[in-house]
Design a protein around this nucleic acid. Structure first.
Lengths: 234, 234
DNA sequence: GCAACAAAAAATGTATACAAGATGAAATCG
DNA sequence: CGATTTCATCTTGTATACATTTTTTGTTGC
């Protein structure tokens, strides 16, 4: 019924399921049955299908023909590809930033790094990890390009899902010195070194994640038959 | 009715409409009414809606709540953003290619440039334009990253729609010498210069397109009430 | 004539009905 | 007892029906 609040239900359901995936209340591999979700949200399957399709194009959900949808579970190769993609995008952005000067931008990023450092000093690891990840988002925003931004954000979203999925230890996240070093290189306009810095930085994260993943793979057992109702309750 | 050929109808309709947009049989701004399309393809609105939604996420179609879908008509700012995005991605790819040697890849791209040159020499402009555009696709493929590739292809698709939409003259497309120069720089591993080359290259295309667009804007009058049936006939 | 309003037509948003593939358990055969 | 087939059930795929919004049309008053 084309109501005044058109697509509002769709958007609400979309946000709810996406948030549940991000918060890992819905684990990779979890099946998402249309009728179940429809009843849970009090809407029809029509809306659920639209939502699932959108989540699938965002790469959060996998849909198989005649088999239905489930939270996406990327392979090791796909994970490597996602990190590589992030590196490529960031190198492009860095190259752009190197060619022109952005004093205010650099200053803002430096301020962010100070936040990182003080969180680390205060041993607030939860906050520190969040800030370390946010640095990359800010860097991408610096490109001031909507398309690139949206794409990069979707890459970060998917990679951070992986990070949290394998309960990565703190040392497999960014190091604040490298962020600082990158800013120095950008300021100097050294594209060559800045690119390498970015590449190595993301490469490090990825390899340390792979190690953590392989270590944790033994005690990984997908909790089957999770209750959607609880998983989706915010 | 969940049939053996699941999603086949959807895919067929999707391809048909997308091809029509690419081939400019469907012009930007053209309204896409669900019932009309449904009857044309002999399917239900359900399928048409799924297709339109997918086209919308691909950026080819714009959907307004309660108003329906139409072929996307990007603003000048959006066009600039798309070209800038292409440049950023290509700079990232180029930075990647510079850091390691890819003799076979360089050779393939050089072979492609020879094709460009011979098409130009033979005054086969149609072929030349296609080849000049294809160079960028090949370059993107060189990154060997599925995510980046898919994203870049969608950017190229949307920008080439614009190129054909404004009936750009030949001199607003790539120049083969610049492609050759870029390869030289990659081979030397000069990230700095290669990045600038890419940026300037796409900047040139964009500005010459803008000029062409402004020139052609007078005699642009959207053919209203085009017949969908004819537009979609392959 | 034309501006404003009212009713009708058309188009989209959502729910539901039904068809067909997928799944799993019971039944059958070796 | 184990492998295989069959059938009941579940789930997805598609069509259609109905509600609500938008757009068009027609009419009235000035």
């Amino acid at each position: 019924m084309g109501r005044k609040d058109a697509n509002q239900r769709t958007d609400h359901v979309l946000a709810a399921i996406r948030d549940a995936i991000i918060a890992r209340r819905l684990r990779p591999g979890q099946r998402l049955r249309e009728l179940e979700l429809a009843e849970l949200f009090g809407v029809s399957r029509t809306i659920i299908r639209a939502v699932l399709q959108q989540l699938a194009t965002a790469g959060l959900v996998r849909i198989e023909a005649n088999k239905g949808a489930s939270v996406d579970l990327p392979s090791h190769d796909e994970i490597a590809g996602l990190f590589q993609a992030r590196a490529i995008i960031e190198m492009g952005i860095v190259a752009r930033l190197c060619s022109t000067t952005h004093p205010d931008l650099i200053q803002r990023l430096r301020a962010h790094i100070e936040l990182e450092q003080s969180a680390i000093d205060a041993s607030d690891y939860r906050q520190a990890i969040a800030l370390l990840g946010e640095f990359h988002i800010l860097l991408a925003q610096a490109a001031e390009n909507e398309s690139v931004n949206a794409f990069y954000r979707s890459l970060v979203l998917r990679t951070s899902l992986i990070v949290s999925a394998i309960e990565a230890p703190a040392d497999s996240t960014c190091r604040t010195e490298e962020h600082s070093e990158l800013l120095d290189l950008i300021e100097k306009g050294n594209v060559q070194a800045a690119s390498m810095c970015v590449w190595n930085h993301l490469q490090e994260i990825q390899t340390s994640l792979r190690v953590a993943a392989e270590k944790g793979e033994q005690d990984y057992h997908p909790l089957q038959h999770l209750f959607l109702r609880e998983s989706l309750a915010k």
